[in-house]
Design a protein around this nucleic acid. Structure first.
Lengths: 327, 327
DNA sequence: TTGTACGCGTTATCAT
DNA sequence: ATGATAACGCGTACAA
């Protein structure tokens, strides 16, 4: 393994000069610098990140801790983060906490241990303990923390309200809401948006809280439809749930956009392609990743204490066919 | 930051003894070891991985380089890899090469630079150059390399053949094949399986090679249906393509399982939930990840040169409704 | 069984 | 502008 001292000998300079030249510190004579670069490439020298990490007490790696790698929303976020990290010379370690507080804690702990340069976290809960990070720069996404950190959020509630209102405008009379578990802030936000849209109307609100899983979407749909006041349309809090709703609807011969109205949060890859194409409230997932990454870059650069920043992104209503009311 | 020498002082022993005790080397007197552990936890000592990495010239991190993070197949693989890595004390850095040879090369290069403990790679092509890894243990998945490495594959061709045969057994007369680009080994394998199933029949083979993207699935379907010899059923090489096929079919009012037969590779999350539920050839994605990880663990443990191993996994035909022929 | 001391490959400080 | 050298924190060969 060729090391910096080999290059130094080859170039006829000291290791210090090699280091400076290779790091482009402009305190080295141009011709000498060139000489060093040549020697380095001649020898096939590649800097040893391990040594550099020890010396600088930090790595060029970020940890991105997300709660569900199978959720297209998070994979899109991941792409945004990764692309931006790449551009800034960082690699990203993708950690899937799987909504499991223990896994999350373990990842946070190794991130701290391994001195990653920064962390982007979609916390399981607002009270997630990030102390094991000891002061590694952190940006929070998706749900805020009970502590002052940089955070990028989307206007979930507003998006939910718009979606529900959209259903009403299309002429649906009794929209119901199927959303995630009550301990998930995003699920609650979406419920609140739904309720807000109903305020001032005579419509009876009907809400089902479920885990964010397809089968639960089906169960909730069945319960609603078999209830006292069957809804004629659905606002669904997540793409997985929507799949379950779809399944139960088709089991009953109910076609979205004809017999019943449907709009869901999150623009899944399949949403435009099924029959009928599903209307959705799209979150700017990729952009969330980019914004979070940019916040992190700044936070790493400015080591001094700065006021935490919050960026809020808007959702987009995509009107396809499932929410339309014919006749 | 509390370091090993602090613990040594606190425990009244040398740093060497602390190191030995903390690493459970049984060459240290039990009572002393206990003393050290107490001192360590009293001080809140946490070993500095950076220093350890430099000393050992390797990390406890794997790089998992996949070609498409938005593909549910790869996310499932990733989960398998991650769970197994976790169990063996490794973290995994997920790298999304995006089917881009340059990105792939860059990731391989940083993996080599950062001295990761091992790499799992789904190569863009059989001739992908892995020399920048310099001899870091490597396991290849999904498609083999033109070089002798451990590899875990699935019997794509056999799965494709079974799927096509299944279509025939259901009574479909003219199955067509829509698969990925010709430079993707998996796409070709699936075509070959299709052709194999047709051998010995009078049926005219019809194959479309497309990028693995939904819109291309729609285009191919349209072309086939408008051709001289419109197929009555489709074997599709990938879930994204299947989405496009589905869209085009519904645009034409053709219902799978009634008007036309359909079976696709890969069991996407949405496959069971749409109308009608889609029959698929499922790859054991999670298990691929697990197997690859286990191979890697062994490869890392046994540093000596060992013959490359190849593990082949079988696909599973899941008969739902889209491939059934009524009447 | 325990301790001393060196080395891992860089970067940064301090002279020059 | 350049060079010698001291860290960075840990593991381990060698000596005791």
């Amino acid at each position: 393994m060729v090391k910096i001292s080999d290059v130094a000998r080859e170039a006829g300079v000291s290791v210090a000069t090699v280091s400076r030249a290779l790091n482009n510190l402009d305190t080295v004579r141009p011709d000498l610098a060139a000489q060093v670069h040549q020697a380095a490439s001649r020898l096939g020298y590649r800097p040893n990140s391990l040594a550099r990490n020890l010396r600088k007490q930090s790595t060029q790696v970020w940890a991105l801790v997300i709660s569900d790698i199978e959720n297209p929303f998070f994979t899109a976020v991941a792409r945004g983060v990764e692309d931006t990290a790449q551009q800034n010379g960082y690699s990203v370690m993708l950690c899937n906490s799987d909504e499991d507080p223990e896994k999350e804690a373990r990842y946070l702990s190794v991130a701290g241990q391994d001195r990653v340069a920064g962390v982007i976290l979609s916390p399981h809960s607002a009270s997630t303990d990030v102390s094991s990070l000891n002061h590694i720069p952190l940006v929070v996404i998706d749900r805020a923390l009970n502590a002052p950190f940089d955070v990028v959020l989307v206007h979930s509630r507003l998006g939910a309200e718009q979606a529900t209102r959209h259903l009403l405008e299309q002429g649906w009379q009794r929209p119901a809401c199927i959303t995630g578990p009550e301990d998930a802030e995003t699920a609650v936000e979406r419920r609140e948006g739904y309720l807000q849209a109903l305020r001032g109307t005579e419509i009876e609100a009907q809400v089902k809280h479920q885990p964010f899983r397809s089968p639960d979407g089906a169960v909730a749909t069945a319960a609603l439809l078999d209830g006292d006041n069957p809804p004629d349309s659905f606002f669904v809090g997540n793409a997985s749930l929507a799949l379950g709703v779809l399944a139960e609807l088709s089991r009953r011969g109910l076609k979205p956009g004809t017999d019943v109205g449907l709009i869901s949060f999150d623009d899944a890859p399949w949403a435009p392609f099924i029959d009928p194409p599903i209307s959705v409230v799209a979150q700017p997932a990729y952009d969330i990743g980019v914004q979070a990454a940019q916040l992190l870059v700044e936070r790493i650069a400015n080591t001094g204490p700065r006021a935490p920043r919050e960026v809020n992104l808007a959702t987009t209503l995509i009107f396809r066919e499932s929410s339309r009311k014919l006749g």
